[in-house]
Each structure stands twice: as structure tokens, then as C-alpha cells.
Amino acid sequence: MELTVNSVARTVQSPPLSSLLTVLREELDITSPKAGCESGGCGACTVLVDGQPRRSCLTAVCAVDGAEVTTVEGLGTPEDLSRVQQAFIHHYAAQCGFCTDGLIVAATAYVGGGGSADTGDIGEALAGHYCRCTGYVKILEAVAAVARGDTFDTASTASSANNTYVTIAGAES
């Protein structure tokens, strides 16, 4: 089988019913898609197959023979980050980072498809991605900022609209 992975042509030797996740991680050593549940429930293994987000753990590799597969490694590098990657840094949308790669892939497809900055729409597009650290607020803010066309300073962290800072009288004593 042949795949184009992150713009590089690869020949796959794994058995045809191997999951795309196993092929990427174990045969091709591309480790950003994570085996969070291996049953399609958590979203951490999400990759783009011909531009569409797919759960690589539920996708038999033979079903995508000849396809173009993109993981987060193919979206940008530390020296040349994509806007979604910049947004996730600037908006503190990654904590432990284990769900981040799948979310960035899905958010890239959402924004690339003309998705709006409406957090309800973003939430619907990213439903099925579990994140146990952030509480999702900062992820929604990051994706909305990309959809709005913001620019990002990755040397700092944005303030969050959902944080309410109350000045406390006497607390400085």
C-alpha cells in the first residue's frame, strides 16, 4: 500500500487491516497521533485523510490506500508554526499536550473549511475530542482567535475572557 504522509510518499508493509494509527506510530514512527482509547472515543489519534479529520485508530490502513495523510508534524515546525499551532501556544490551549495534536488537526480542518469564530460552532466541530486538563475554554478561545484572523505572539500568553479577576481589598497586606 502507498500513502503520502506529510507530503512524503511512503510504502506500507503492515497487514492491510492494521489501523492507520498503528501504521503511523509503529511502522512509520510518526508518534503525534496518540492511542488514548483505541476505540474512537477520545479523538487523540485524529489525523487528516485527504483533508478530512479521521480517527486513525478506527481506520483500517487498506481503506485509505493511496490517500494523503497529514498529522500535526506536517502542519508546521517549531521554526514555522501554523496559525492554529501559534494560537494553541498563545492561548494556553495545551496543558499536558496528549490531546493537543488531535485537536490541532481537527481545528485546522475546521478553520480551513471556513469555520466561524462562534464557540458553539467550534464546540460542535471539535465534539468527540476529550481534554481532561483545560476545561476546553482556552481551546475554544484559541480556535476562535484563528477564525477571527488574529495574529499571535507565541512569546506570551493571552488573558482569557473567561477569567474574572477581582481586586481584593486588603489582600496585599
Binding site: 508518534t31 498529522t71 500535526v72 517549531p78 494553541f88 499536550g97 493537543t100 500568553t157
Partner: peptide, 20 residues
């Protein structure tokens, strides 16, 4: 408002977890 020290690794798939 400092960025995460591991932010770039997390968003580029370069952070190495035990399974990696």
C-alpha cells in the same frame, strides 16, 4: 504572561511521552 516552556513541543507533535 509567560508561554509554556513545553508549548512548542506540544503543538508540533515533538513532545516525547513514554509511549513514544
Amino acid at each position: 504572561r509567560l508561554p509554556r516552556y513545553d508549548g512548542v513541543g506540544h503543538v508540533t507533535g515533538r513532545t516525547t511521552y513514554v509511549d513514544d
